[in-house]
């Protein structure tokens, strides 16, 4: 039953993920790969679309993945799943507990979770870069250097640095995505 599965998977993701959209990326990636909902490349496409449209990344991803698997019903249950734990927890926090950070125990737990989530985001970047740049998603795969993808990555990094150092501002992610789309068309049409 695809609806129940989508709902439960996103309920779990909503309940245990910390640090917002990108903190959820590793959990969402594992689930979509495990159930064969998306390929690694399609998953990256979905992130790009979610990042370039308004709204919270996690909600966009849930809607998109749900819709891709089971249409409007899938989109509804996946979105509901990812939002429900947040909503319930925050209701309890704002109604009963007040500022939870005044409890030393909560701070201690978060002191463990925050560095772990940071590591999860960095590690996910490495794990996703492996197939895209080297053609193999594990050490057992066949290694092939994808210089075109690496070239686009380098161009994106260069543009980011240019904005940071010369213009002294952060370039909005949407602009980086548009630029990389143009760069992709350029290197792959060669």
């Amino acid at each position: 039953m695809i609806y129940a599965k989508l709902f439960l998977v996103f309920l779990k993701i909503g309940a245990v993920s910390f640090g917002g959209g990108y903190g959820m990326i590793s959990l969402i990636r594992e689930s979509v790969l495990e159930y064969g909902w998306l390929t690694e490349e399609k998953f990256l496409d979905f992130i790009a679309v979610s990042e370039s449209t308004p709204g919270p990344l996690a909600v966009n991803m849930a809607t998109f993945i749900g819709a891709s698997q089971a249409g409007i019903g899938g989109a509804l249950v996946a979105t509901l799943g990812v939002v429900l734990p947040s909503f319930a927890v925050l209701l309890v926090v704002s109604a009963v507990l007040g500022n939870i950070l005044k409890y030393a125990g909560v701070k201690a737990v978060l002191g463990g979770i925050r560095p772990a989530v940071t590591a999860m985001i960095l590690s996910t970047a490495v794990l996703m870069a492996a197939p895209l740049f080297f053609g193999a998603d594990s050490v057992y795969g066949e290694f092939s250097f994808k210089w075109k993808n690496v070239a686009v990555f380098a161009a994106v990094a260069a543009l980011w640095l240019f904005f940071k150092i010369v213009l002294r501002r952060n370039i909005p992610p949407v602009l980086l995505i548009i630029f990389s789309a143009a760069a992709g068309i350029a290197v792959y049409s060669l």
């Binding site: 990256l44 496409d45 992130i47 996703m128 994106v156 143009a182 068309i185 792959y188």
Partner: peptide, 14 residues
């Protein structure tokens, strides 16, 4: 082609 470029960009964003 555009989305292949975008995939590399998403790695950068993450």
């Amino acid at each position: 082609y555009a989305f292949r470029g975008v995939q590399a960009c998403v790695i950068f964003l993450i």
